[in-house]
Every structure is written in structure tokens, then in C-alpha cells.
Simulated assay, not measured.
Amino acid sequence: MKIISMIPARYSASRFPGKLMQDLGGKTVILQTYQATVATNLFDDVIVVTDSTVIYDEIATNGGKVMLSKKEHDCGSDRIAEAIEHLDVDVVVNVQGDEPFTDEVSLRKLIAVFKEDTKKEVDLASLMVHISNEDEIKNPNTVKVVLDNKNFALYFSRSPIPYPRDTSVAVKYYKHKGVYAFRKDALLDFYRLPMLTLEASEKLEQLRYLEYGKRIKMVETSVEGVEIDTPEDLERAKKLWK
């Protein structure tokens, strides 16, 4: 089984343009993410795929592997799909360019899902973190996921799910981390299928997989790190990095 990691890296982020080129511990965010992923030694290859010549040059001049997208893309999955369409791979792990704290233990858990899935019942695997802070549960920038009894995703939402109508029920809330592992065929299906209403409404690309009947196995991790979406996130990341 050939397993690679692809790191989609868009320069013009809506909330924090140029965030991937910001300094974190003496290197740019995107370079820290790339080097941390390589250092896990879990992958046959690690490649950054970007729409930006600035990011391309940053990775290339530091000895990394990088590809330039040929088309405009609305999401990271599309960008990766274009890049791997003609590559000989079985499983692709998407590490977000703004997640420099993604760790080896969590990635190893994702890869294990596919190595143990002899019946090929899993199309995707992704990470989640248990959360209990009420503000985080209500925050629309924190994407929540609910599961069936085998840890397959039932739904993702920016809203608090499940809704706590009965507060006496001990419900656990999970935050979805944007780290995915795909079977190549599932990713290419995503690339070729049109967006439907749930994805369009919530602006969550993982809902396209669910709407078309794909199965997403969720894997719990205790490593949360920091997703750098805002300047405030970057300051938190700098403190954590130290």
C-alpha cells in the first residue's frame, strides 16, 4: 500500500491572507508544517500543492517537494485531487498547511485505519478532539461531528451538535480537525461530483462525501495544537511553539 501526504497551501486565506508565510519559530508556518510531516517518517512521499509562486519558492528553496496547481480550486480536496489524479498511490493523507502541530501519533492512527480495513469499508478517515468548553462548542468556527456506534461520521456542523435539549444526558462533543486520509478513488469521486446543498450551506467540504454516501471513519486524538486561522491564533501558536 503506497501512502503519501499532500499539504494543500493557499496563499489568499479570507480571514488571514498570507498566514502560511508568517513566522513561527524562525521559519514560515508552511515550512514548519512540511518539515514536521516529513519528520514523522510515515509516508512514501510528502508534497505541498499550492496556487502561489511565493509558497512554491519557499518550499523548493528549502529542499522540499512542491507542485503548482494548474486550475483554480475552492477547497483543499480539489487541489489535492488534481495533483494526485495521475500518481500511483493508494491512500492520500491531507495535512492542512496551517496545522504545524500535527503529530506522528495522530497520523499513525489514521494510516492504521486503512491497513486494518481489509474489506475496504472506509472511504476516508479523519481526526477529532473531545471538547468540553461551552464557548468552543457554540463557536461556528469550531466544526463539530456526531458519530454512529462504530465511530463513522453521521454529520458535521458549525452548530452545536447534538443539541442539548436534555441537559441531564452525558453527551460528548467532538471538534473535527481538518486532517484527512482518503482512498484515491474516493478523493477523485469528490473532485468530479458537484457540490450539493448541505456543503453549500455549511461551507464544509466533508459534507459532500456524506451526501454522496461515502463513509468517514473518525479517529480520536488528544493532540489539539493550534489551527492558524487568525492573527490571534498565530500568537497562540508562537507561545505554544516555545
Score class of each variant (00 low, 15 high):
Lys2Tyr: 10
Ile3Thr: 15
Ile4Asp: 06
Met6Lys: 14
Ile7Thr: 02
Ala9Tyr: 03
Ser12Val: 01
Ala13Met: 14
Ala13Trp: 10
Arg15Cys: 12
Lys19Ala: 14
Leu20Phe: 12
Asp23His: 02
Leu24Asn: 02
Leu24Tyr: 04
Leu24Gln: 04
Gly25Trp: 03
Val29Leu: 09
Ile30Phe: 07
Leu31Val: 03
Gln32Val: 09
Thr33Lys: 06
Ala36Met: 12
Ala36Gly: 12
Ala36Trp: 05
Thr37Ala: 09
Leu42Trp: 10
Asp44Ile: 13
Ile47Val: 15
Ile47Pro: 02
Ile47Arg: 10
Thr50Pro: 00
Ser52Glu: 12
Thr53Val: 14
Val54Ile: 11
Glu58Cys: 09
Ala60Leu: 15
Ala60Val: 10
Ala60Ile: 08
Ala60Tyr: 11
Thr61Cys: 08
Thr61Tyr: 09
Gly63Trp: 01
Gly63Pro: 00
Gly64Tyr: 09
Lys65Leu: 04
Val66Trp: 05
Leu68Lys: 11
Ser69Asn: 13
Ser69Thr: 13
Lys70Arg: 14
Asp74Gln: 11
Cys75Thr: 13
Cys75Gln: 10
Gly76Ile: 03
Ser77Met: 12
Asp78Val: 02
Asp78Glu: 14
Ile80Gly: 00
Ile80Val: 08
Ala83Met: 08
Asp90Glu: 14
Val91Tyr: 05
Val91Cys: 06
Gly97Met: 02
Asp98Val: 03
Asp98Glu: 13
Asp98Lys: 05
Thr102Cys: 04
Glu104Ile: 10
Val105Phe: 10
Val105Met: 12
Leu107Cys: 06
Arg108Ile: 00
Arg108Met: 03
Arg108Pro: 00
Ala112Ile: 01
Ala112Met: 04
Ala112Gln: 08
Val113Cys: 08
Val113Asn: 00
Phe114Arg: 00
Phe114Asn: 01
Lys115Pro: 00
Glu116Ser: 03
Asp117Ala: 07
Thr118Gln: 03
Lys119Arg: 15
Leu124Trp: 07
Ala125Met: 03
Ser126Phe: 13
Leu127Met: 04
Met128Tyr: 05
Val129Gly: 01
His130Leu: 01
Ile131Ala: 08
Asp135Ser: 06
Ile137Phe: 14
Asn141Phe: 11
Thr142Asp: 05
Lys144Glu: 13
Val146Met: 15
Asn149Gln: 13
Phe152His: 11
Ala153Ser: 08
Leu154Met: 15
Tyr155Asn: 14
Ser157Asn: 14
Pro164Met: 15
Arg165Trp: 14
Val169Asn: 15
Val171Pro: 06
Lys172Pro: 00
Tyr173Glu: 07
Tyr173Gly: 05
His176Glu: 12
Lys177Leu: 11
Val179Tyr: 11
Ala181Asn: 02
Arg183Thr: 10
Leu188Ile: 08
Asp189Pro: 08
Arg192Met: 09
Leu193Glu: 14
Leu193Phe: 13
Leu193Ala: 12
Thr197Glu: 15
Glu199Arg: 11
Glu199Thr: 15
Lys203Glu: 13
Leu204Lys: 06
Glu205Thr: 13
Gln206Ser: 12
Tyr209Cys: 12
Leu210Arg: 11
Tyr212Lys: 11
Ile216Trp: 09
Lys217Thr: 07
Lys217Val: 11
Met218Lys: 02
Val219Trp: 03
Glu220Leu: 08
Glu220Thr: 08
Thr221Cys: 04
Glu224Phe: 01
Val226Ser: 04
Val226Ala: 04
Ile228Asp: 02
Ile228Trp: 02
Asp229Ile: 04
Asp229Pro: 00
Thr230Asp: 00
Pro231Ser: 03
Leu234Gly: 10
Glu235Leu: 09
Arg236Pro: 05
Lys238Arg: 13
Leu240Ser: 00
Lys242Tyr: 06
